[in-house]
């Protein structure tokens, strides 16, 4: 069949032939080949498949364009000769695991640096207190856990993301690590009573274990090769849609109880704010998908993220 590629502003980028039984993957490979041969008007880079977003433009005013998903045949989208497709260049892509590694490796290393280079940073040498050492150890453990999870537990529904996200996310995590560490490792840091420090950090550790459990649960939600959304069940999920976030936020809450710093609380609030938004979206999506109609399951009544409030 003959297809026409359009830019997002509707300019024609290329016109080419492709086999009638081709898949979206074949189409993307062909587009990459054309980009390498400089046969795509206005495109000078190697447009590898992860950089391409292909969609069928909406015919009616309010309709949404249909995005072509990899692994499916072109015929599954009803494409026929003479049809037009919109091509969006998503920009340089980078692997999810790479992004996660760098955004978590930073905080793990930055926090202890404030103790190691305390003389240079604070201009005074001092013996770090037990609370400072414990808080640093907990912080490092937290991000070490995240790195381990990235490579052993998490499964990603997308392989890559735009490279800008690496800088944005790293800026967030590295920046907060430095700001929280600055105050907790400060020579004038005032520790709460030690019993509270022990209890708070122990509780925070327990939350980390619970969080890990939910991550393992989420990763096993889909059998190999299975696609689409599933209703999460089991530890935590029977009451809360995003129990993984719940334990994460509770964990930082316990950390703040133990270490008592304004910057730690700010960090917790920023993270919690973002997670509440994500959880709200996921909750709405699951409720819409599992509406109890046409033999579909009805999504059970659950908290979104932070019982007993939302």
């Amino acid at each position: 069949m003959k297809l026409t590629l359009l830019s997002r502003s509707g300019r024609e980028v290329a016109e080419f032939d492709i086999a009638d039984d081709a898949t979206v993957d074949d189409l993307q490979a062909q587009i990459q080949r054309l980009s390498k041969e400089k046969k795509l008007k206005g495109i000078k880079t190697d447009l590898y498949p992860a950089r391409q977003r292909l969609s069928i433009p909406a015919v009616e005013e309010k309709a949404k364009p249909v995005v072509l998903t990899v692994g499916k045949a072109l015929s599954a989208f009803g494409l026929k000769t003479g049809d037009k497709l919109t091509l969006k260049d998503l920009g340089t892509q980078i692997g999810y695991q790479t992004v996660f590694f760098w955004e978590y490796f930073g905080p793990m290393v930055i926090f202890p640096m404030f103790l190691v280079f305390r003389k240079q940073i604070y201009g005074a040498d001092f013996e770090p207190s037990e609370t400072q050492l414990l808080a640093t150890a907990y912080w490092m453990f937290h991000y070490f856990k995240r790195i381990v999870e990235t490579y052993t537990v998490h499964s990603f529904s997308h392989a890559t993301m735009p490279i800008f996200n690496l800088f944005r996310n790293s800026g967030y995590y590295w920046g907060f690590a430095a700001m929280v560490a600055y105050f907790i490792c400060h020579p004038f840091y005032t520790s709460p009573p030690l019993e509270r420090v022990y209890a708070g950090l122990a509780a925070a550790l327990l939350m980390q274990v619970c969080n890990l459990t939910t991550h393992i649960n989420l990763a096993s939600l889909r059998a190999p090769g299975m696609k689409g959304y599933q209703i999460p069940r089991g530890f935590g999920f029977n009451f809360i849609t995003c129990a993984n976030y719940t334990f994460e936020i509770y964990g930082w809450f316990c950390f703040n109880i133990a270490t008592q710093s304004v910057m730690g609380v700010v960090f917790m609030c920023c993270g919690a704010g973002q997670m509440v938004i994500w959880a709200g979206q996921k909750h709405a999506r699951l409720r819409k998908l599992f509406d109890g109609k046409d033999g579909k399951e009805k999504y059970p009544r659950r908290f979104v993220i932070l019982p007993p409030f939302i």
Binding site: F183, I184, H186, F188, Y189, T190, Q260, S261, V262, M263
Partner: peptide, 10 residues
């Protein structure tokens, strides 16, 4: 606003 204080903030 200088440390030390109970907010551990400066």
């Amino acid at each position: 606003f200088t440390m030390p204080n109970l907010f551990n903030f400066g």
